[in-house]
Nucleic acid binder design. Structure first.
Lengths: 193, 193
DNA sequence: ATGGGTGATGGCAGTTACTGCTATCGCCTA
DNA sequence: TAGGCGATAGCAGTAACTGCCATCACCCAT
């Protein structure tokens, strides 16, 4: 079969998404996915570790560039601004393929298990950013707050951005959400927002 | 055995925690927990639905009072302040039993599966708060941002509060974290935080 | 080219988290 | 006291993993 051909994970993920489209994530068995990709069920769990990891294929190294982005950022920025720059780099990556982003988002939101894993993925993202901020001698709690708030803004921005596809790019939506976050958190009394 | 005795879920959860202490969460089998509580494995899954739900027993209705708390809040408060009040109610509940809170937190943090479920629980909390804010005709995105940021502050506050046990009450720690969140999100340049 | 080292894969067996189904059990009410 | 009713036991089955080892393709030195 397709043994020893390159990109085994990619072929498995593609087969998985075909099955998701036909019968949904939960009904797509590990053995079925493997068979459709011409591989053994064992390889699915060896390569992905987890059934829940399969739909996230391609986002493995989202957190890779954070440390570098933040380290190479100019001086004179607050922790939150640094985190914001790091997430903006992510936006560019997601922006490349909106169609697949929407497909993946739909699959994830349709399954409680995958929603849980999605939250864990975003938490890892935030942790990577917070770790990068710590290197800049930023206080631990401030680093976590900055990182997690920015990832929160990213999460909401992605949903807004996917709502109607090609209105504007994710980066613009993200910065808009960040502005609203600033206004929301610092507002006192029901005056403005 | 203990059939038809009251509080079956509580007895199962207690048996579960005894096993967690001896051999850890993952090694504690559903059948073992049931046997220790004098019940059948089937009852574990019927009552909890999930192995991952067992350690969270007692937090089932954390989101219950949110709608009422926010509805009965006075006029003239921002979305964030409303969410803050709702979470403060939660702090009081958690504050009741710090020992069990720490025990549960330790069990949860020791297992990746339980950390995932914990994130999902906090997300439900935030969603409940956001829903309650929507009733007050608050904009959808602002409601989500306010609810999620407050729950984020709660999450970090609980960890800080559990770090050393009896220094101060959770409510005080939570409001301190909220203050730092305000400063972090709205800070521009590396001047103050 | 040939034989061995290496890492990826196939294949099997076993455990465990669940899920339906049905019989049974204890309580409560007429 | 008979019967309804909700909770439980018990069994069978599925599917997600996991450990173990044989096997296979590829690479490299001889």
């Amino acid at each position: 079969m397709g043994r020893w051909q390159p990109d085994a994970k990619g072929r498995l993920a593609a087969a998985a998404y075909e099955l998701y489209a036909r019968k949904g994530y939960e009904a797509a068995t590990g053995a079925e996915i493997a068979a459709r990709a011409g591989m053994h069920e064992r390889s699915v769990f060896r390569l992905f570790g987890d059934k829940k990891e399969i739909p996230f294929h391609g986002m493995e190294d989202v957190a890779a560039g954070f440390a570098e982005t933040i380290r190479s950022a100019p001086e004179g920025l607050s922790a939150f601004e640094l985190a914001q720059r790091a997430v903006e780099g992510q936006c560019a990556l997601i922006n490349i393929n909106p169609a697949h982003a929407k497909l993946r988002h739909d699959v994830i939101m349709a399954s409680p298990d995958l929603r849980e894993r999605d939250l864990a993925k975003h938490a890892e993202l935030a942790e990577a950013i917070a770790d990068a901020l710590l290197i800049r001698r930023i206080d631990g709690i401030v680093a976590r707050l900055a990182a997690e708030s920015c990832v929160l803004a990213l999460r909401i921005a992605v949903e807004e951005w996917l709502r109607d596809s090609t209105v504007s790019d994710l980066n613009r939506v993200f910065n808009g959400v960040v502005d609203r976050l600033r206004a929301t958190v610092s507002s006192v009394g029901d005056s403005t927002p």
